[in-house]
Structures are given as C-alpha cells and as structure tokens.
Simulated assay, not measured.
Amino acid sequence: MTRFGYTLMTEQSGPKELVGYAVDAERAGFDFEVMSDHYSPWLASQGHAPYAWSVLGAVAHATERVGLATYVTCPTMRYHPAVVAQKAATIQLLSDGRFTLGLGAGENLNEHVVGERWPGVDERHDMLEEAALIIRELLTGDLVTVEGEHFRVDSARIWDAPEGGVPIGIAVSGEKSLERFAPIGDHLITTEPEAALVDGWKARTEADEPRAIGQVPICWAPDADEAVALAHDQFRWFAGGWSVNSDLPTPAGFTQASQYVRPEDVASSIACGPDLDALAESVRPFLDAGFTDIALVQVGDRHQQRFLDEVAEPLLEKLRALG
C-alpha cells in the first residue's frame, strides 16, 4: 500500500512554524514527513532557511508516529560525512527508530557558502559514494579510520549509535547513478516518476524491503487564480530542471533564470487550486511507476495551516483511494 507523506519545506517556513506543521501533519494522517536541508531558499520570495537538523530534533520530540527523513542532505561539503553520521544517529534515537537518512550530491546554492569550489557532477558522485560508505560504517558504532580520496576520518566512533543503524536513501536520476548507488543504499529517492528507476533500484539494492520515495508539489488555495499566482511566486524555479537547479549559486541567480517562466507554465506542471480530485490525480504518474512513498509539497506558507486543518484529511482519503 502506498504511503503518503508531508514535506517540511525549510525554504518557505520558519523553524517554529515547521514544528507546528509537523505535529498537525501527523494529526491529519500523513504516514511520514520529509524535510529539505538548505542554507538558502531557492527564491528570495520564499524567505526562509532554518537549520534542518535542529528542526528535525524538535520534530522527533514533538511527534510520535510519523516516519521522518531528510529529502535530502548533502554529506560532502557543508557537512563532513562523520558529522552527518553523528546527526543521523541522534535523530534516530530521538525518534525511536523512525528516521531515514536521505542523501544526495547537493546543489551549489547550499554548498558554495563554505567557500569551496563547486565540483563537476562526476566528482560530486565520487564524493557522495565515499561519504555514504563512511556514514554506513560509522553508524555501526565501531571505531573508524579512513584515508579516502576525498575524506579523512581519524579514530571516530558514534558513541550513541542506534541498534540496527539508520536506513539510507540516496537520490538518483538515471542509469549511471543507479549502478553506483543502489548497491550501497537502502531506498531510492528521485524526483521523476520513472518506473525504470524503481525497477532498476530493486534489482540492484541489497535492502530487504526497498522503498521508492518521490515528491510531488501541489498548491491548494480557495481560489484557482490565487493558487497559480502563489505557485508562480514560490515555485517557478522548479521549471529549470535538475541540471540547472544543481549549479546556480544564489537565490538572485534563480530569480534571473526563472524570469521568463509564466504562471501558465507553472500551472502546467503543478496542480493548483481548490479541486481535491485534480490535486490527488497529480500523483498518479508516481503511483503508476510503482513508488511506495509519495511526499506532497504544499507550495507556500500562506495557506499551509489551513491546508493541514481543512484539506489534508479529505485529500489523503482521495489519494489512498487511488493508491
């Protein structure tokens, strides 16, 4: 049975609001919650970027049932993999085993802030593979020393290591990344509803019950025109595609790159408005592709509380009827 999740979008809400939304999303019946891990918003109009791991700690304490995950964190530049392993272990303990560590190769937007050069995609994937292997080894609680091509770890141990470790999801986008990351990851994370990615991951991973985790933006508002305007203001960066989005360094750059994206362009790729059937139907490509987990993004902070109070429960009923 497909699980439906809620996205704690750090780019569009402050830290206290996110914790409150997490509690309300659990109450509304979502199965899991994923959190973005950004240093900057995509666009200045989004206006937020709290530290995801602090918020995750608060969410782990404030919720009881929902699964939690990063969607996704980059363990190669802004964070050393040894630090990511420690953070993931702590969140797993605080959440009583509900946490999945989602990893990805990162975006220039968030990683350039530490003053290092932005590597090409092949090098980023080399770094991610090495980092994921280090994290998995550290999560055993054993003493670890590594002299790698990209990272050094010197006599490190996670002293509060959760029994059974932490499941690791890895973001992939095609055959090459499937070949590389499925054998070292547990769960697939991807933004495209492609059955080949789901099937390819299942064929290559060693995990017993691999999940395929996708994400779908929607924009509910009481008026359709308002919803389109809100989605255009907050999410027009989405039209750039991942090859563009991973390389632009600043919100100003995304503003310039998306200046010719029209409201109707956004509305053609994001379901907008008050029609719950249309919002639910927008997840069908992921259902048809065999995804086990689909996280919704309610675009913008403006109607977030009303969405959770009034819309989430009936929308989840429609989604579960589809799935």
Rank of each mutant, 00 (worst) to 15 (best):
W42I: 06
N110D: 13
G106F: 05
A156I: 13
E194T: 05
P249G: 03
E26D: 10
R262I: 03
F181I: 06
T73W: 00
A221M: 11
A22R: 13
A252K: 14
D247W: 02
I294R: 02
Y6H: 15
H48A: 12
L230M: 14
E310G: 09
A182N: 06
E192D: 02
H187P: 02
L8N: 10
D293K: 01
T10G: 10
E64R: 15
D154P: 01
E194L: 13
L56A: 14
P222Y: 14
A82Q: 11
L279S: 10
E64G: 15
Q46V: 07
Y6G: 06
I134V: 14
H80A: 14
G241C: 08
K16C: 02
L18I: 14
Q234L: 03
L197H: 04
A195Q: 13
D31W: 08
T191K: 07
R180A: 02
I158H: 04
G174W: 08
N110C: 02
I135M: 09
G5K: 04
D208L: 00
I170T: 07
A132T: 11
A196P: 01
Y39S: 10
R27D: 12
Q215E: 05
D265T: 08
G169D: 00
F286C: 05
G148Q: 04
D186Y: 00
V59R: 05
A69T: 10
T191E: 09
P41K: 08
D37H: 05
V114D: 11
S246M: 15
K318R: 15
E179M: 04
T73K: 00
H125F: 13
G240W: 05
R236L: 07
L43M: 07
H125P: 00
A105H: 01
M1W: 05
K318C: 05
T255C: 01
E175H: 09
D265E: 08
L308S: 11
V299K: 03
F286H: 07
T76A: 11
L43V: 06
G214Y: 01
E123L: 11
L319D: 04
V261S: 02
G97F: 05
L139N: 04
A25M: 13
I270P: 03
G241A: 09
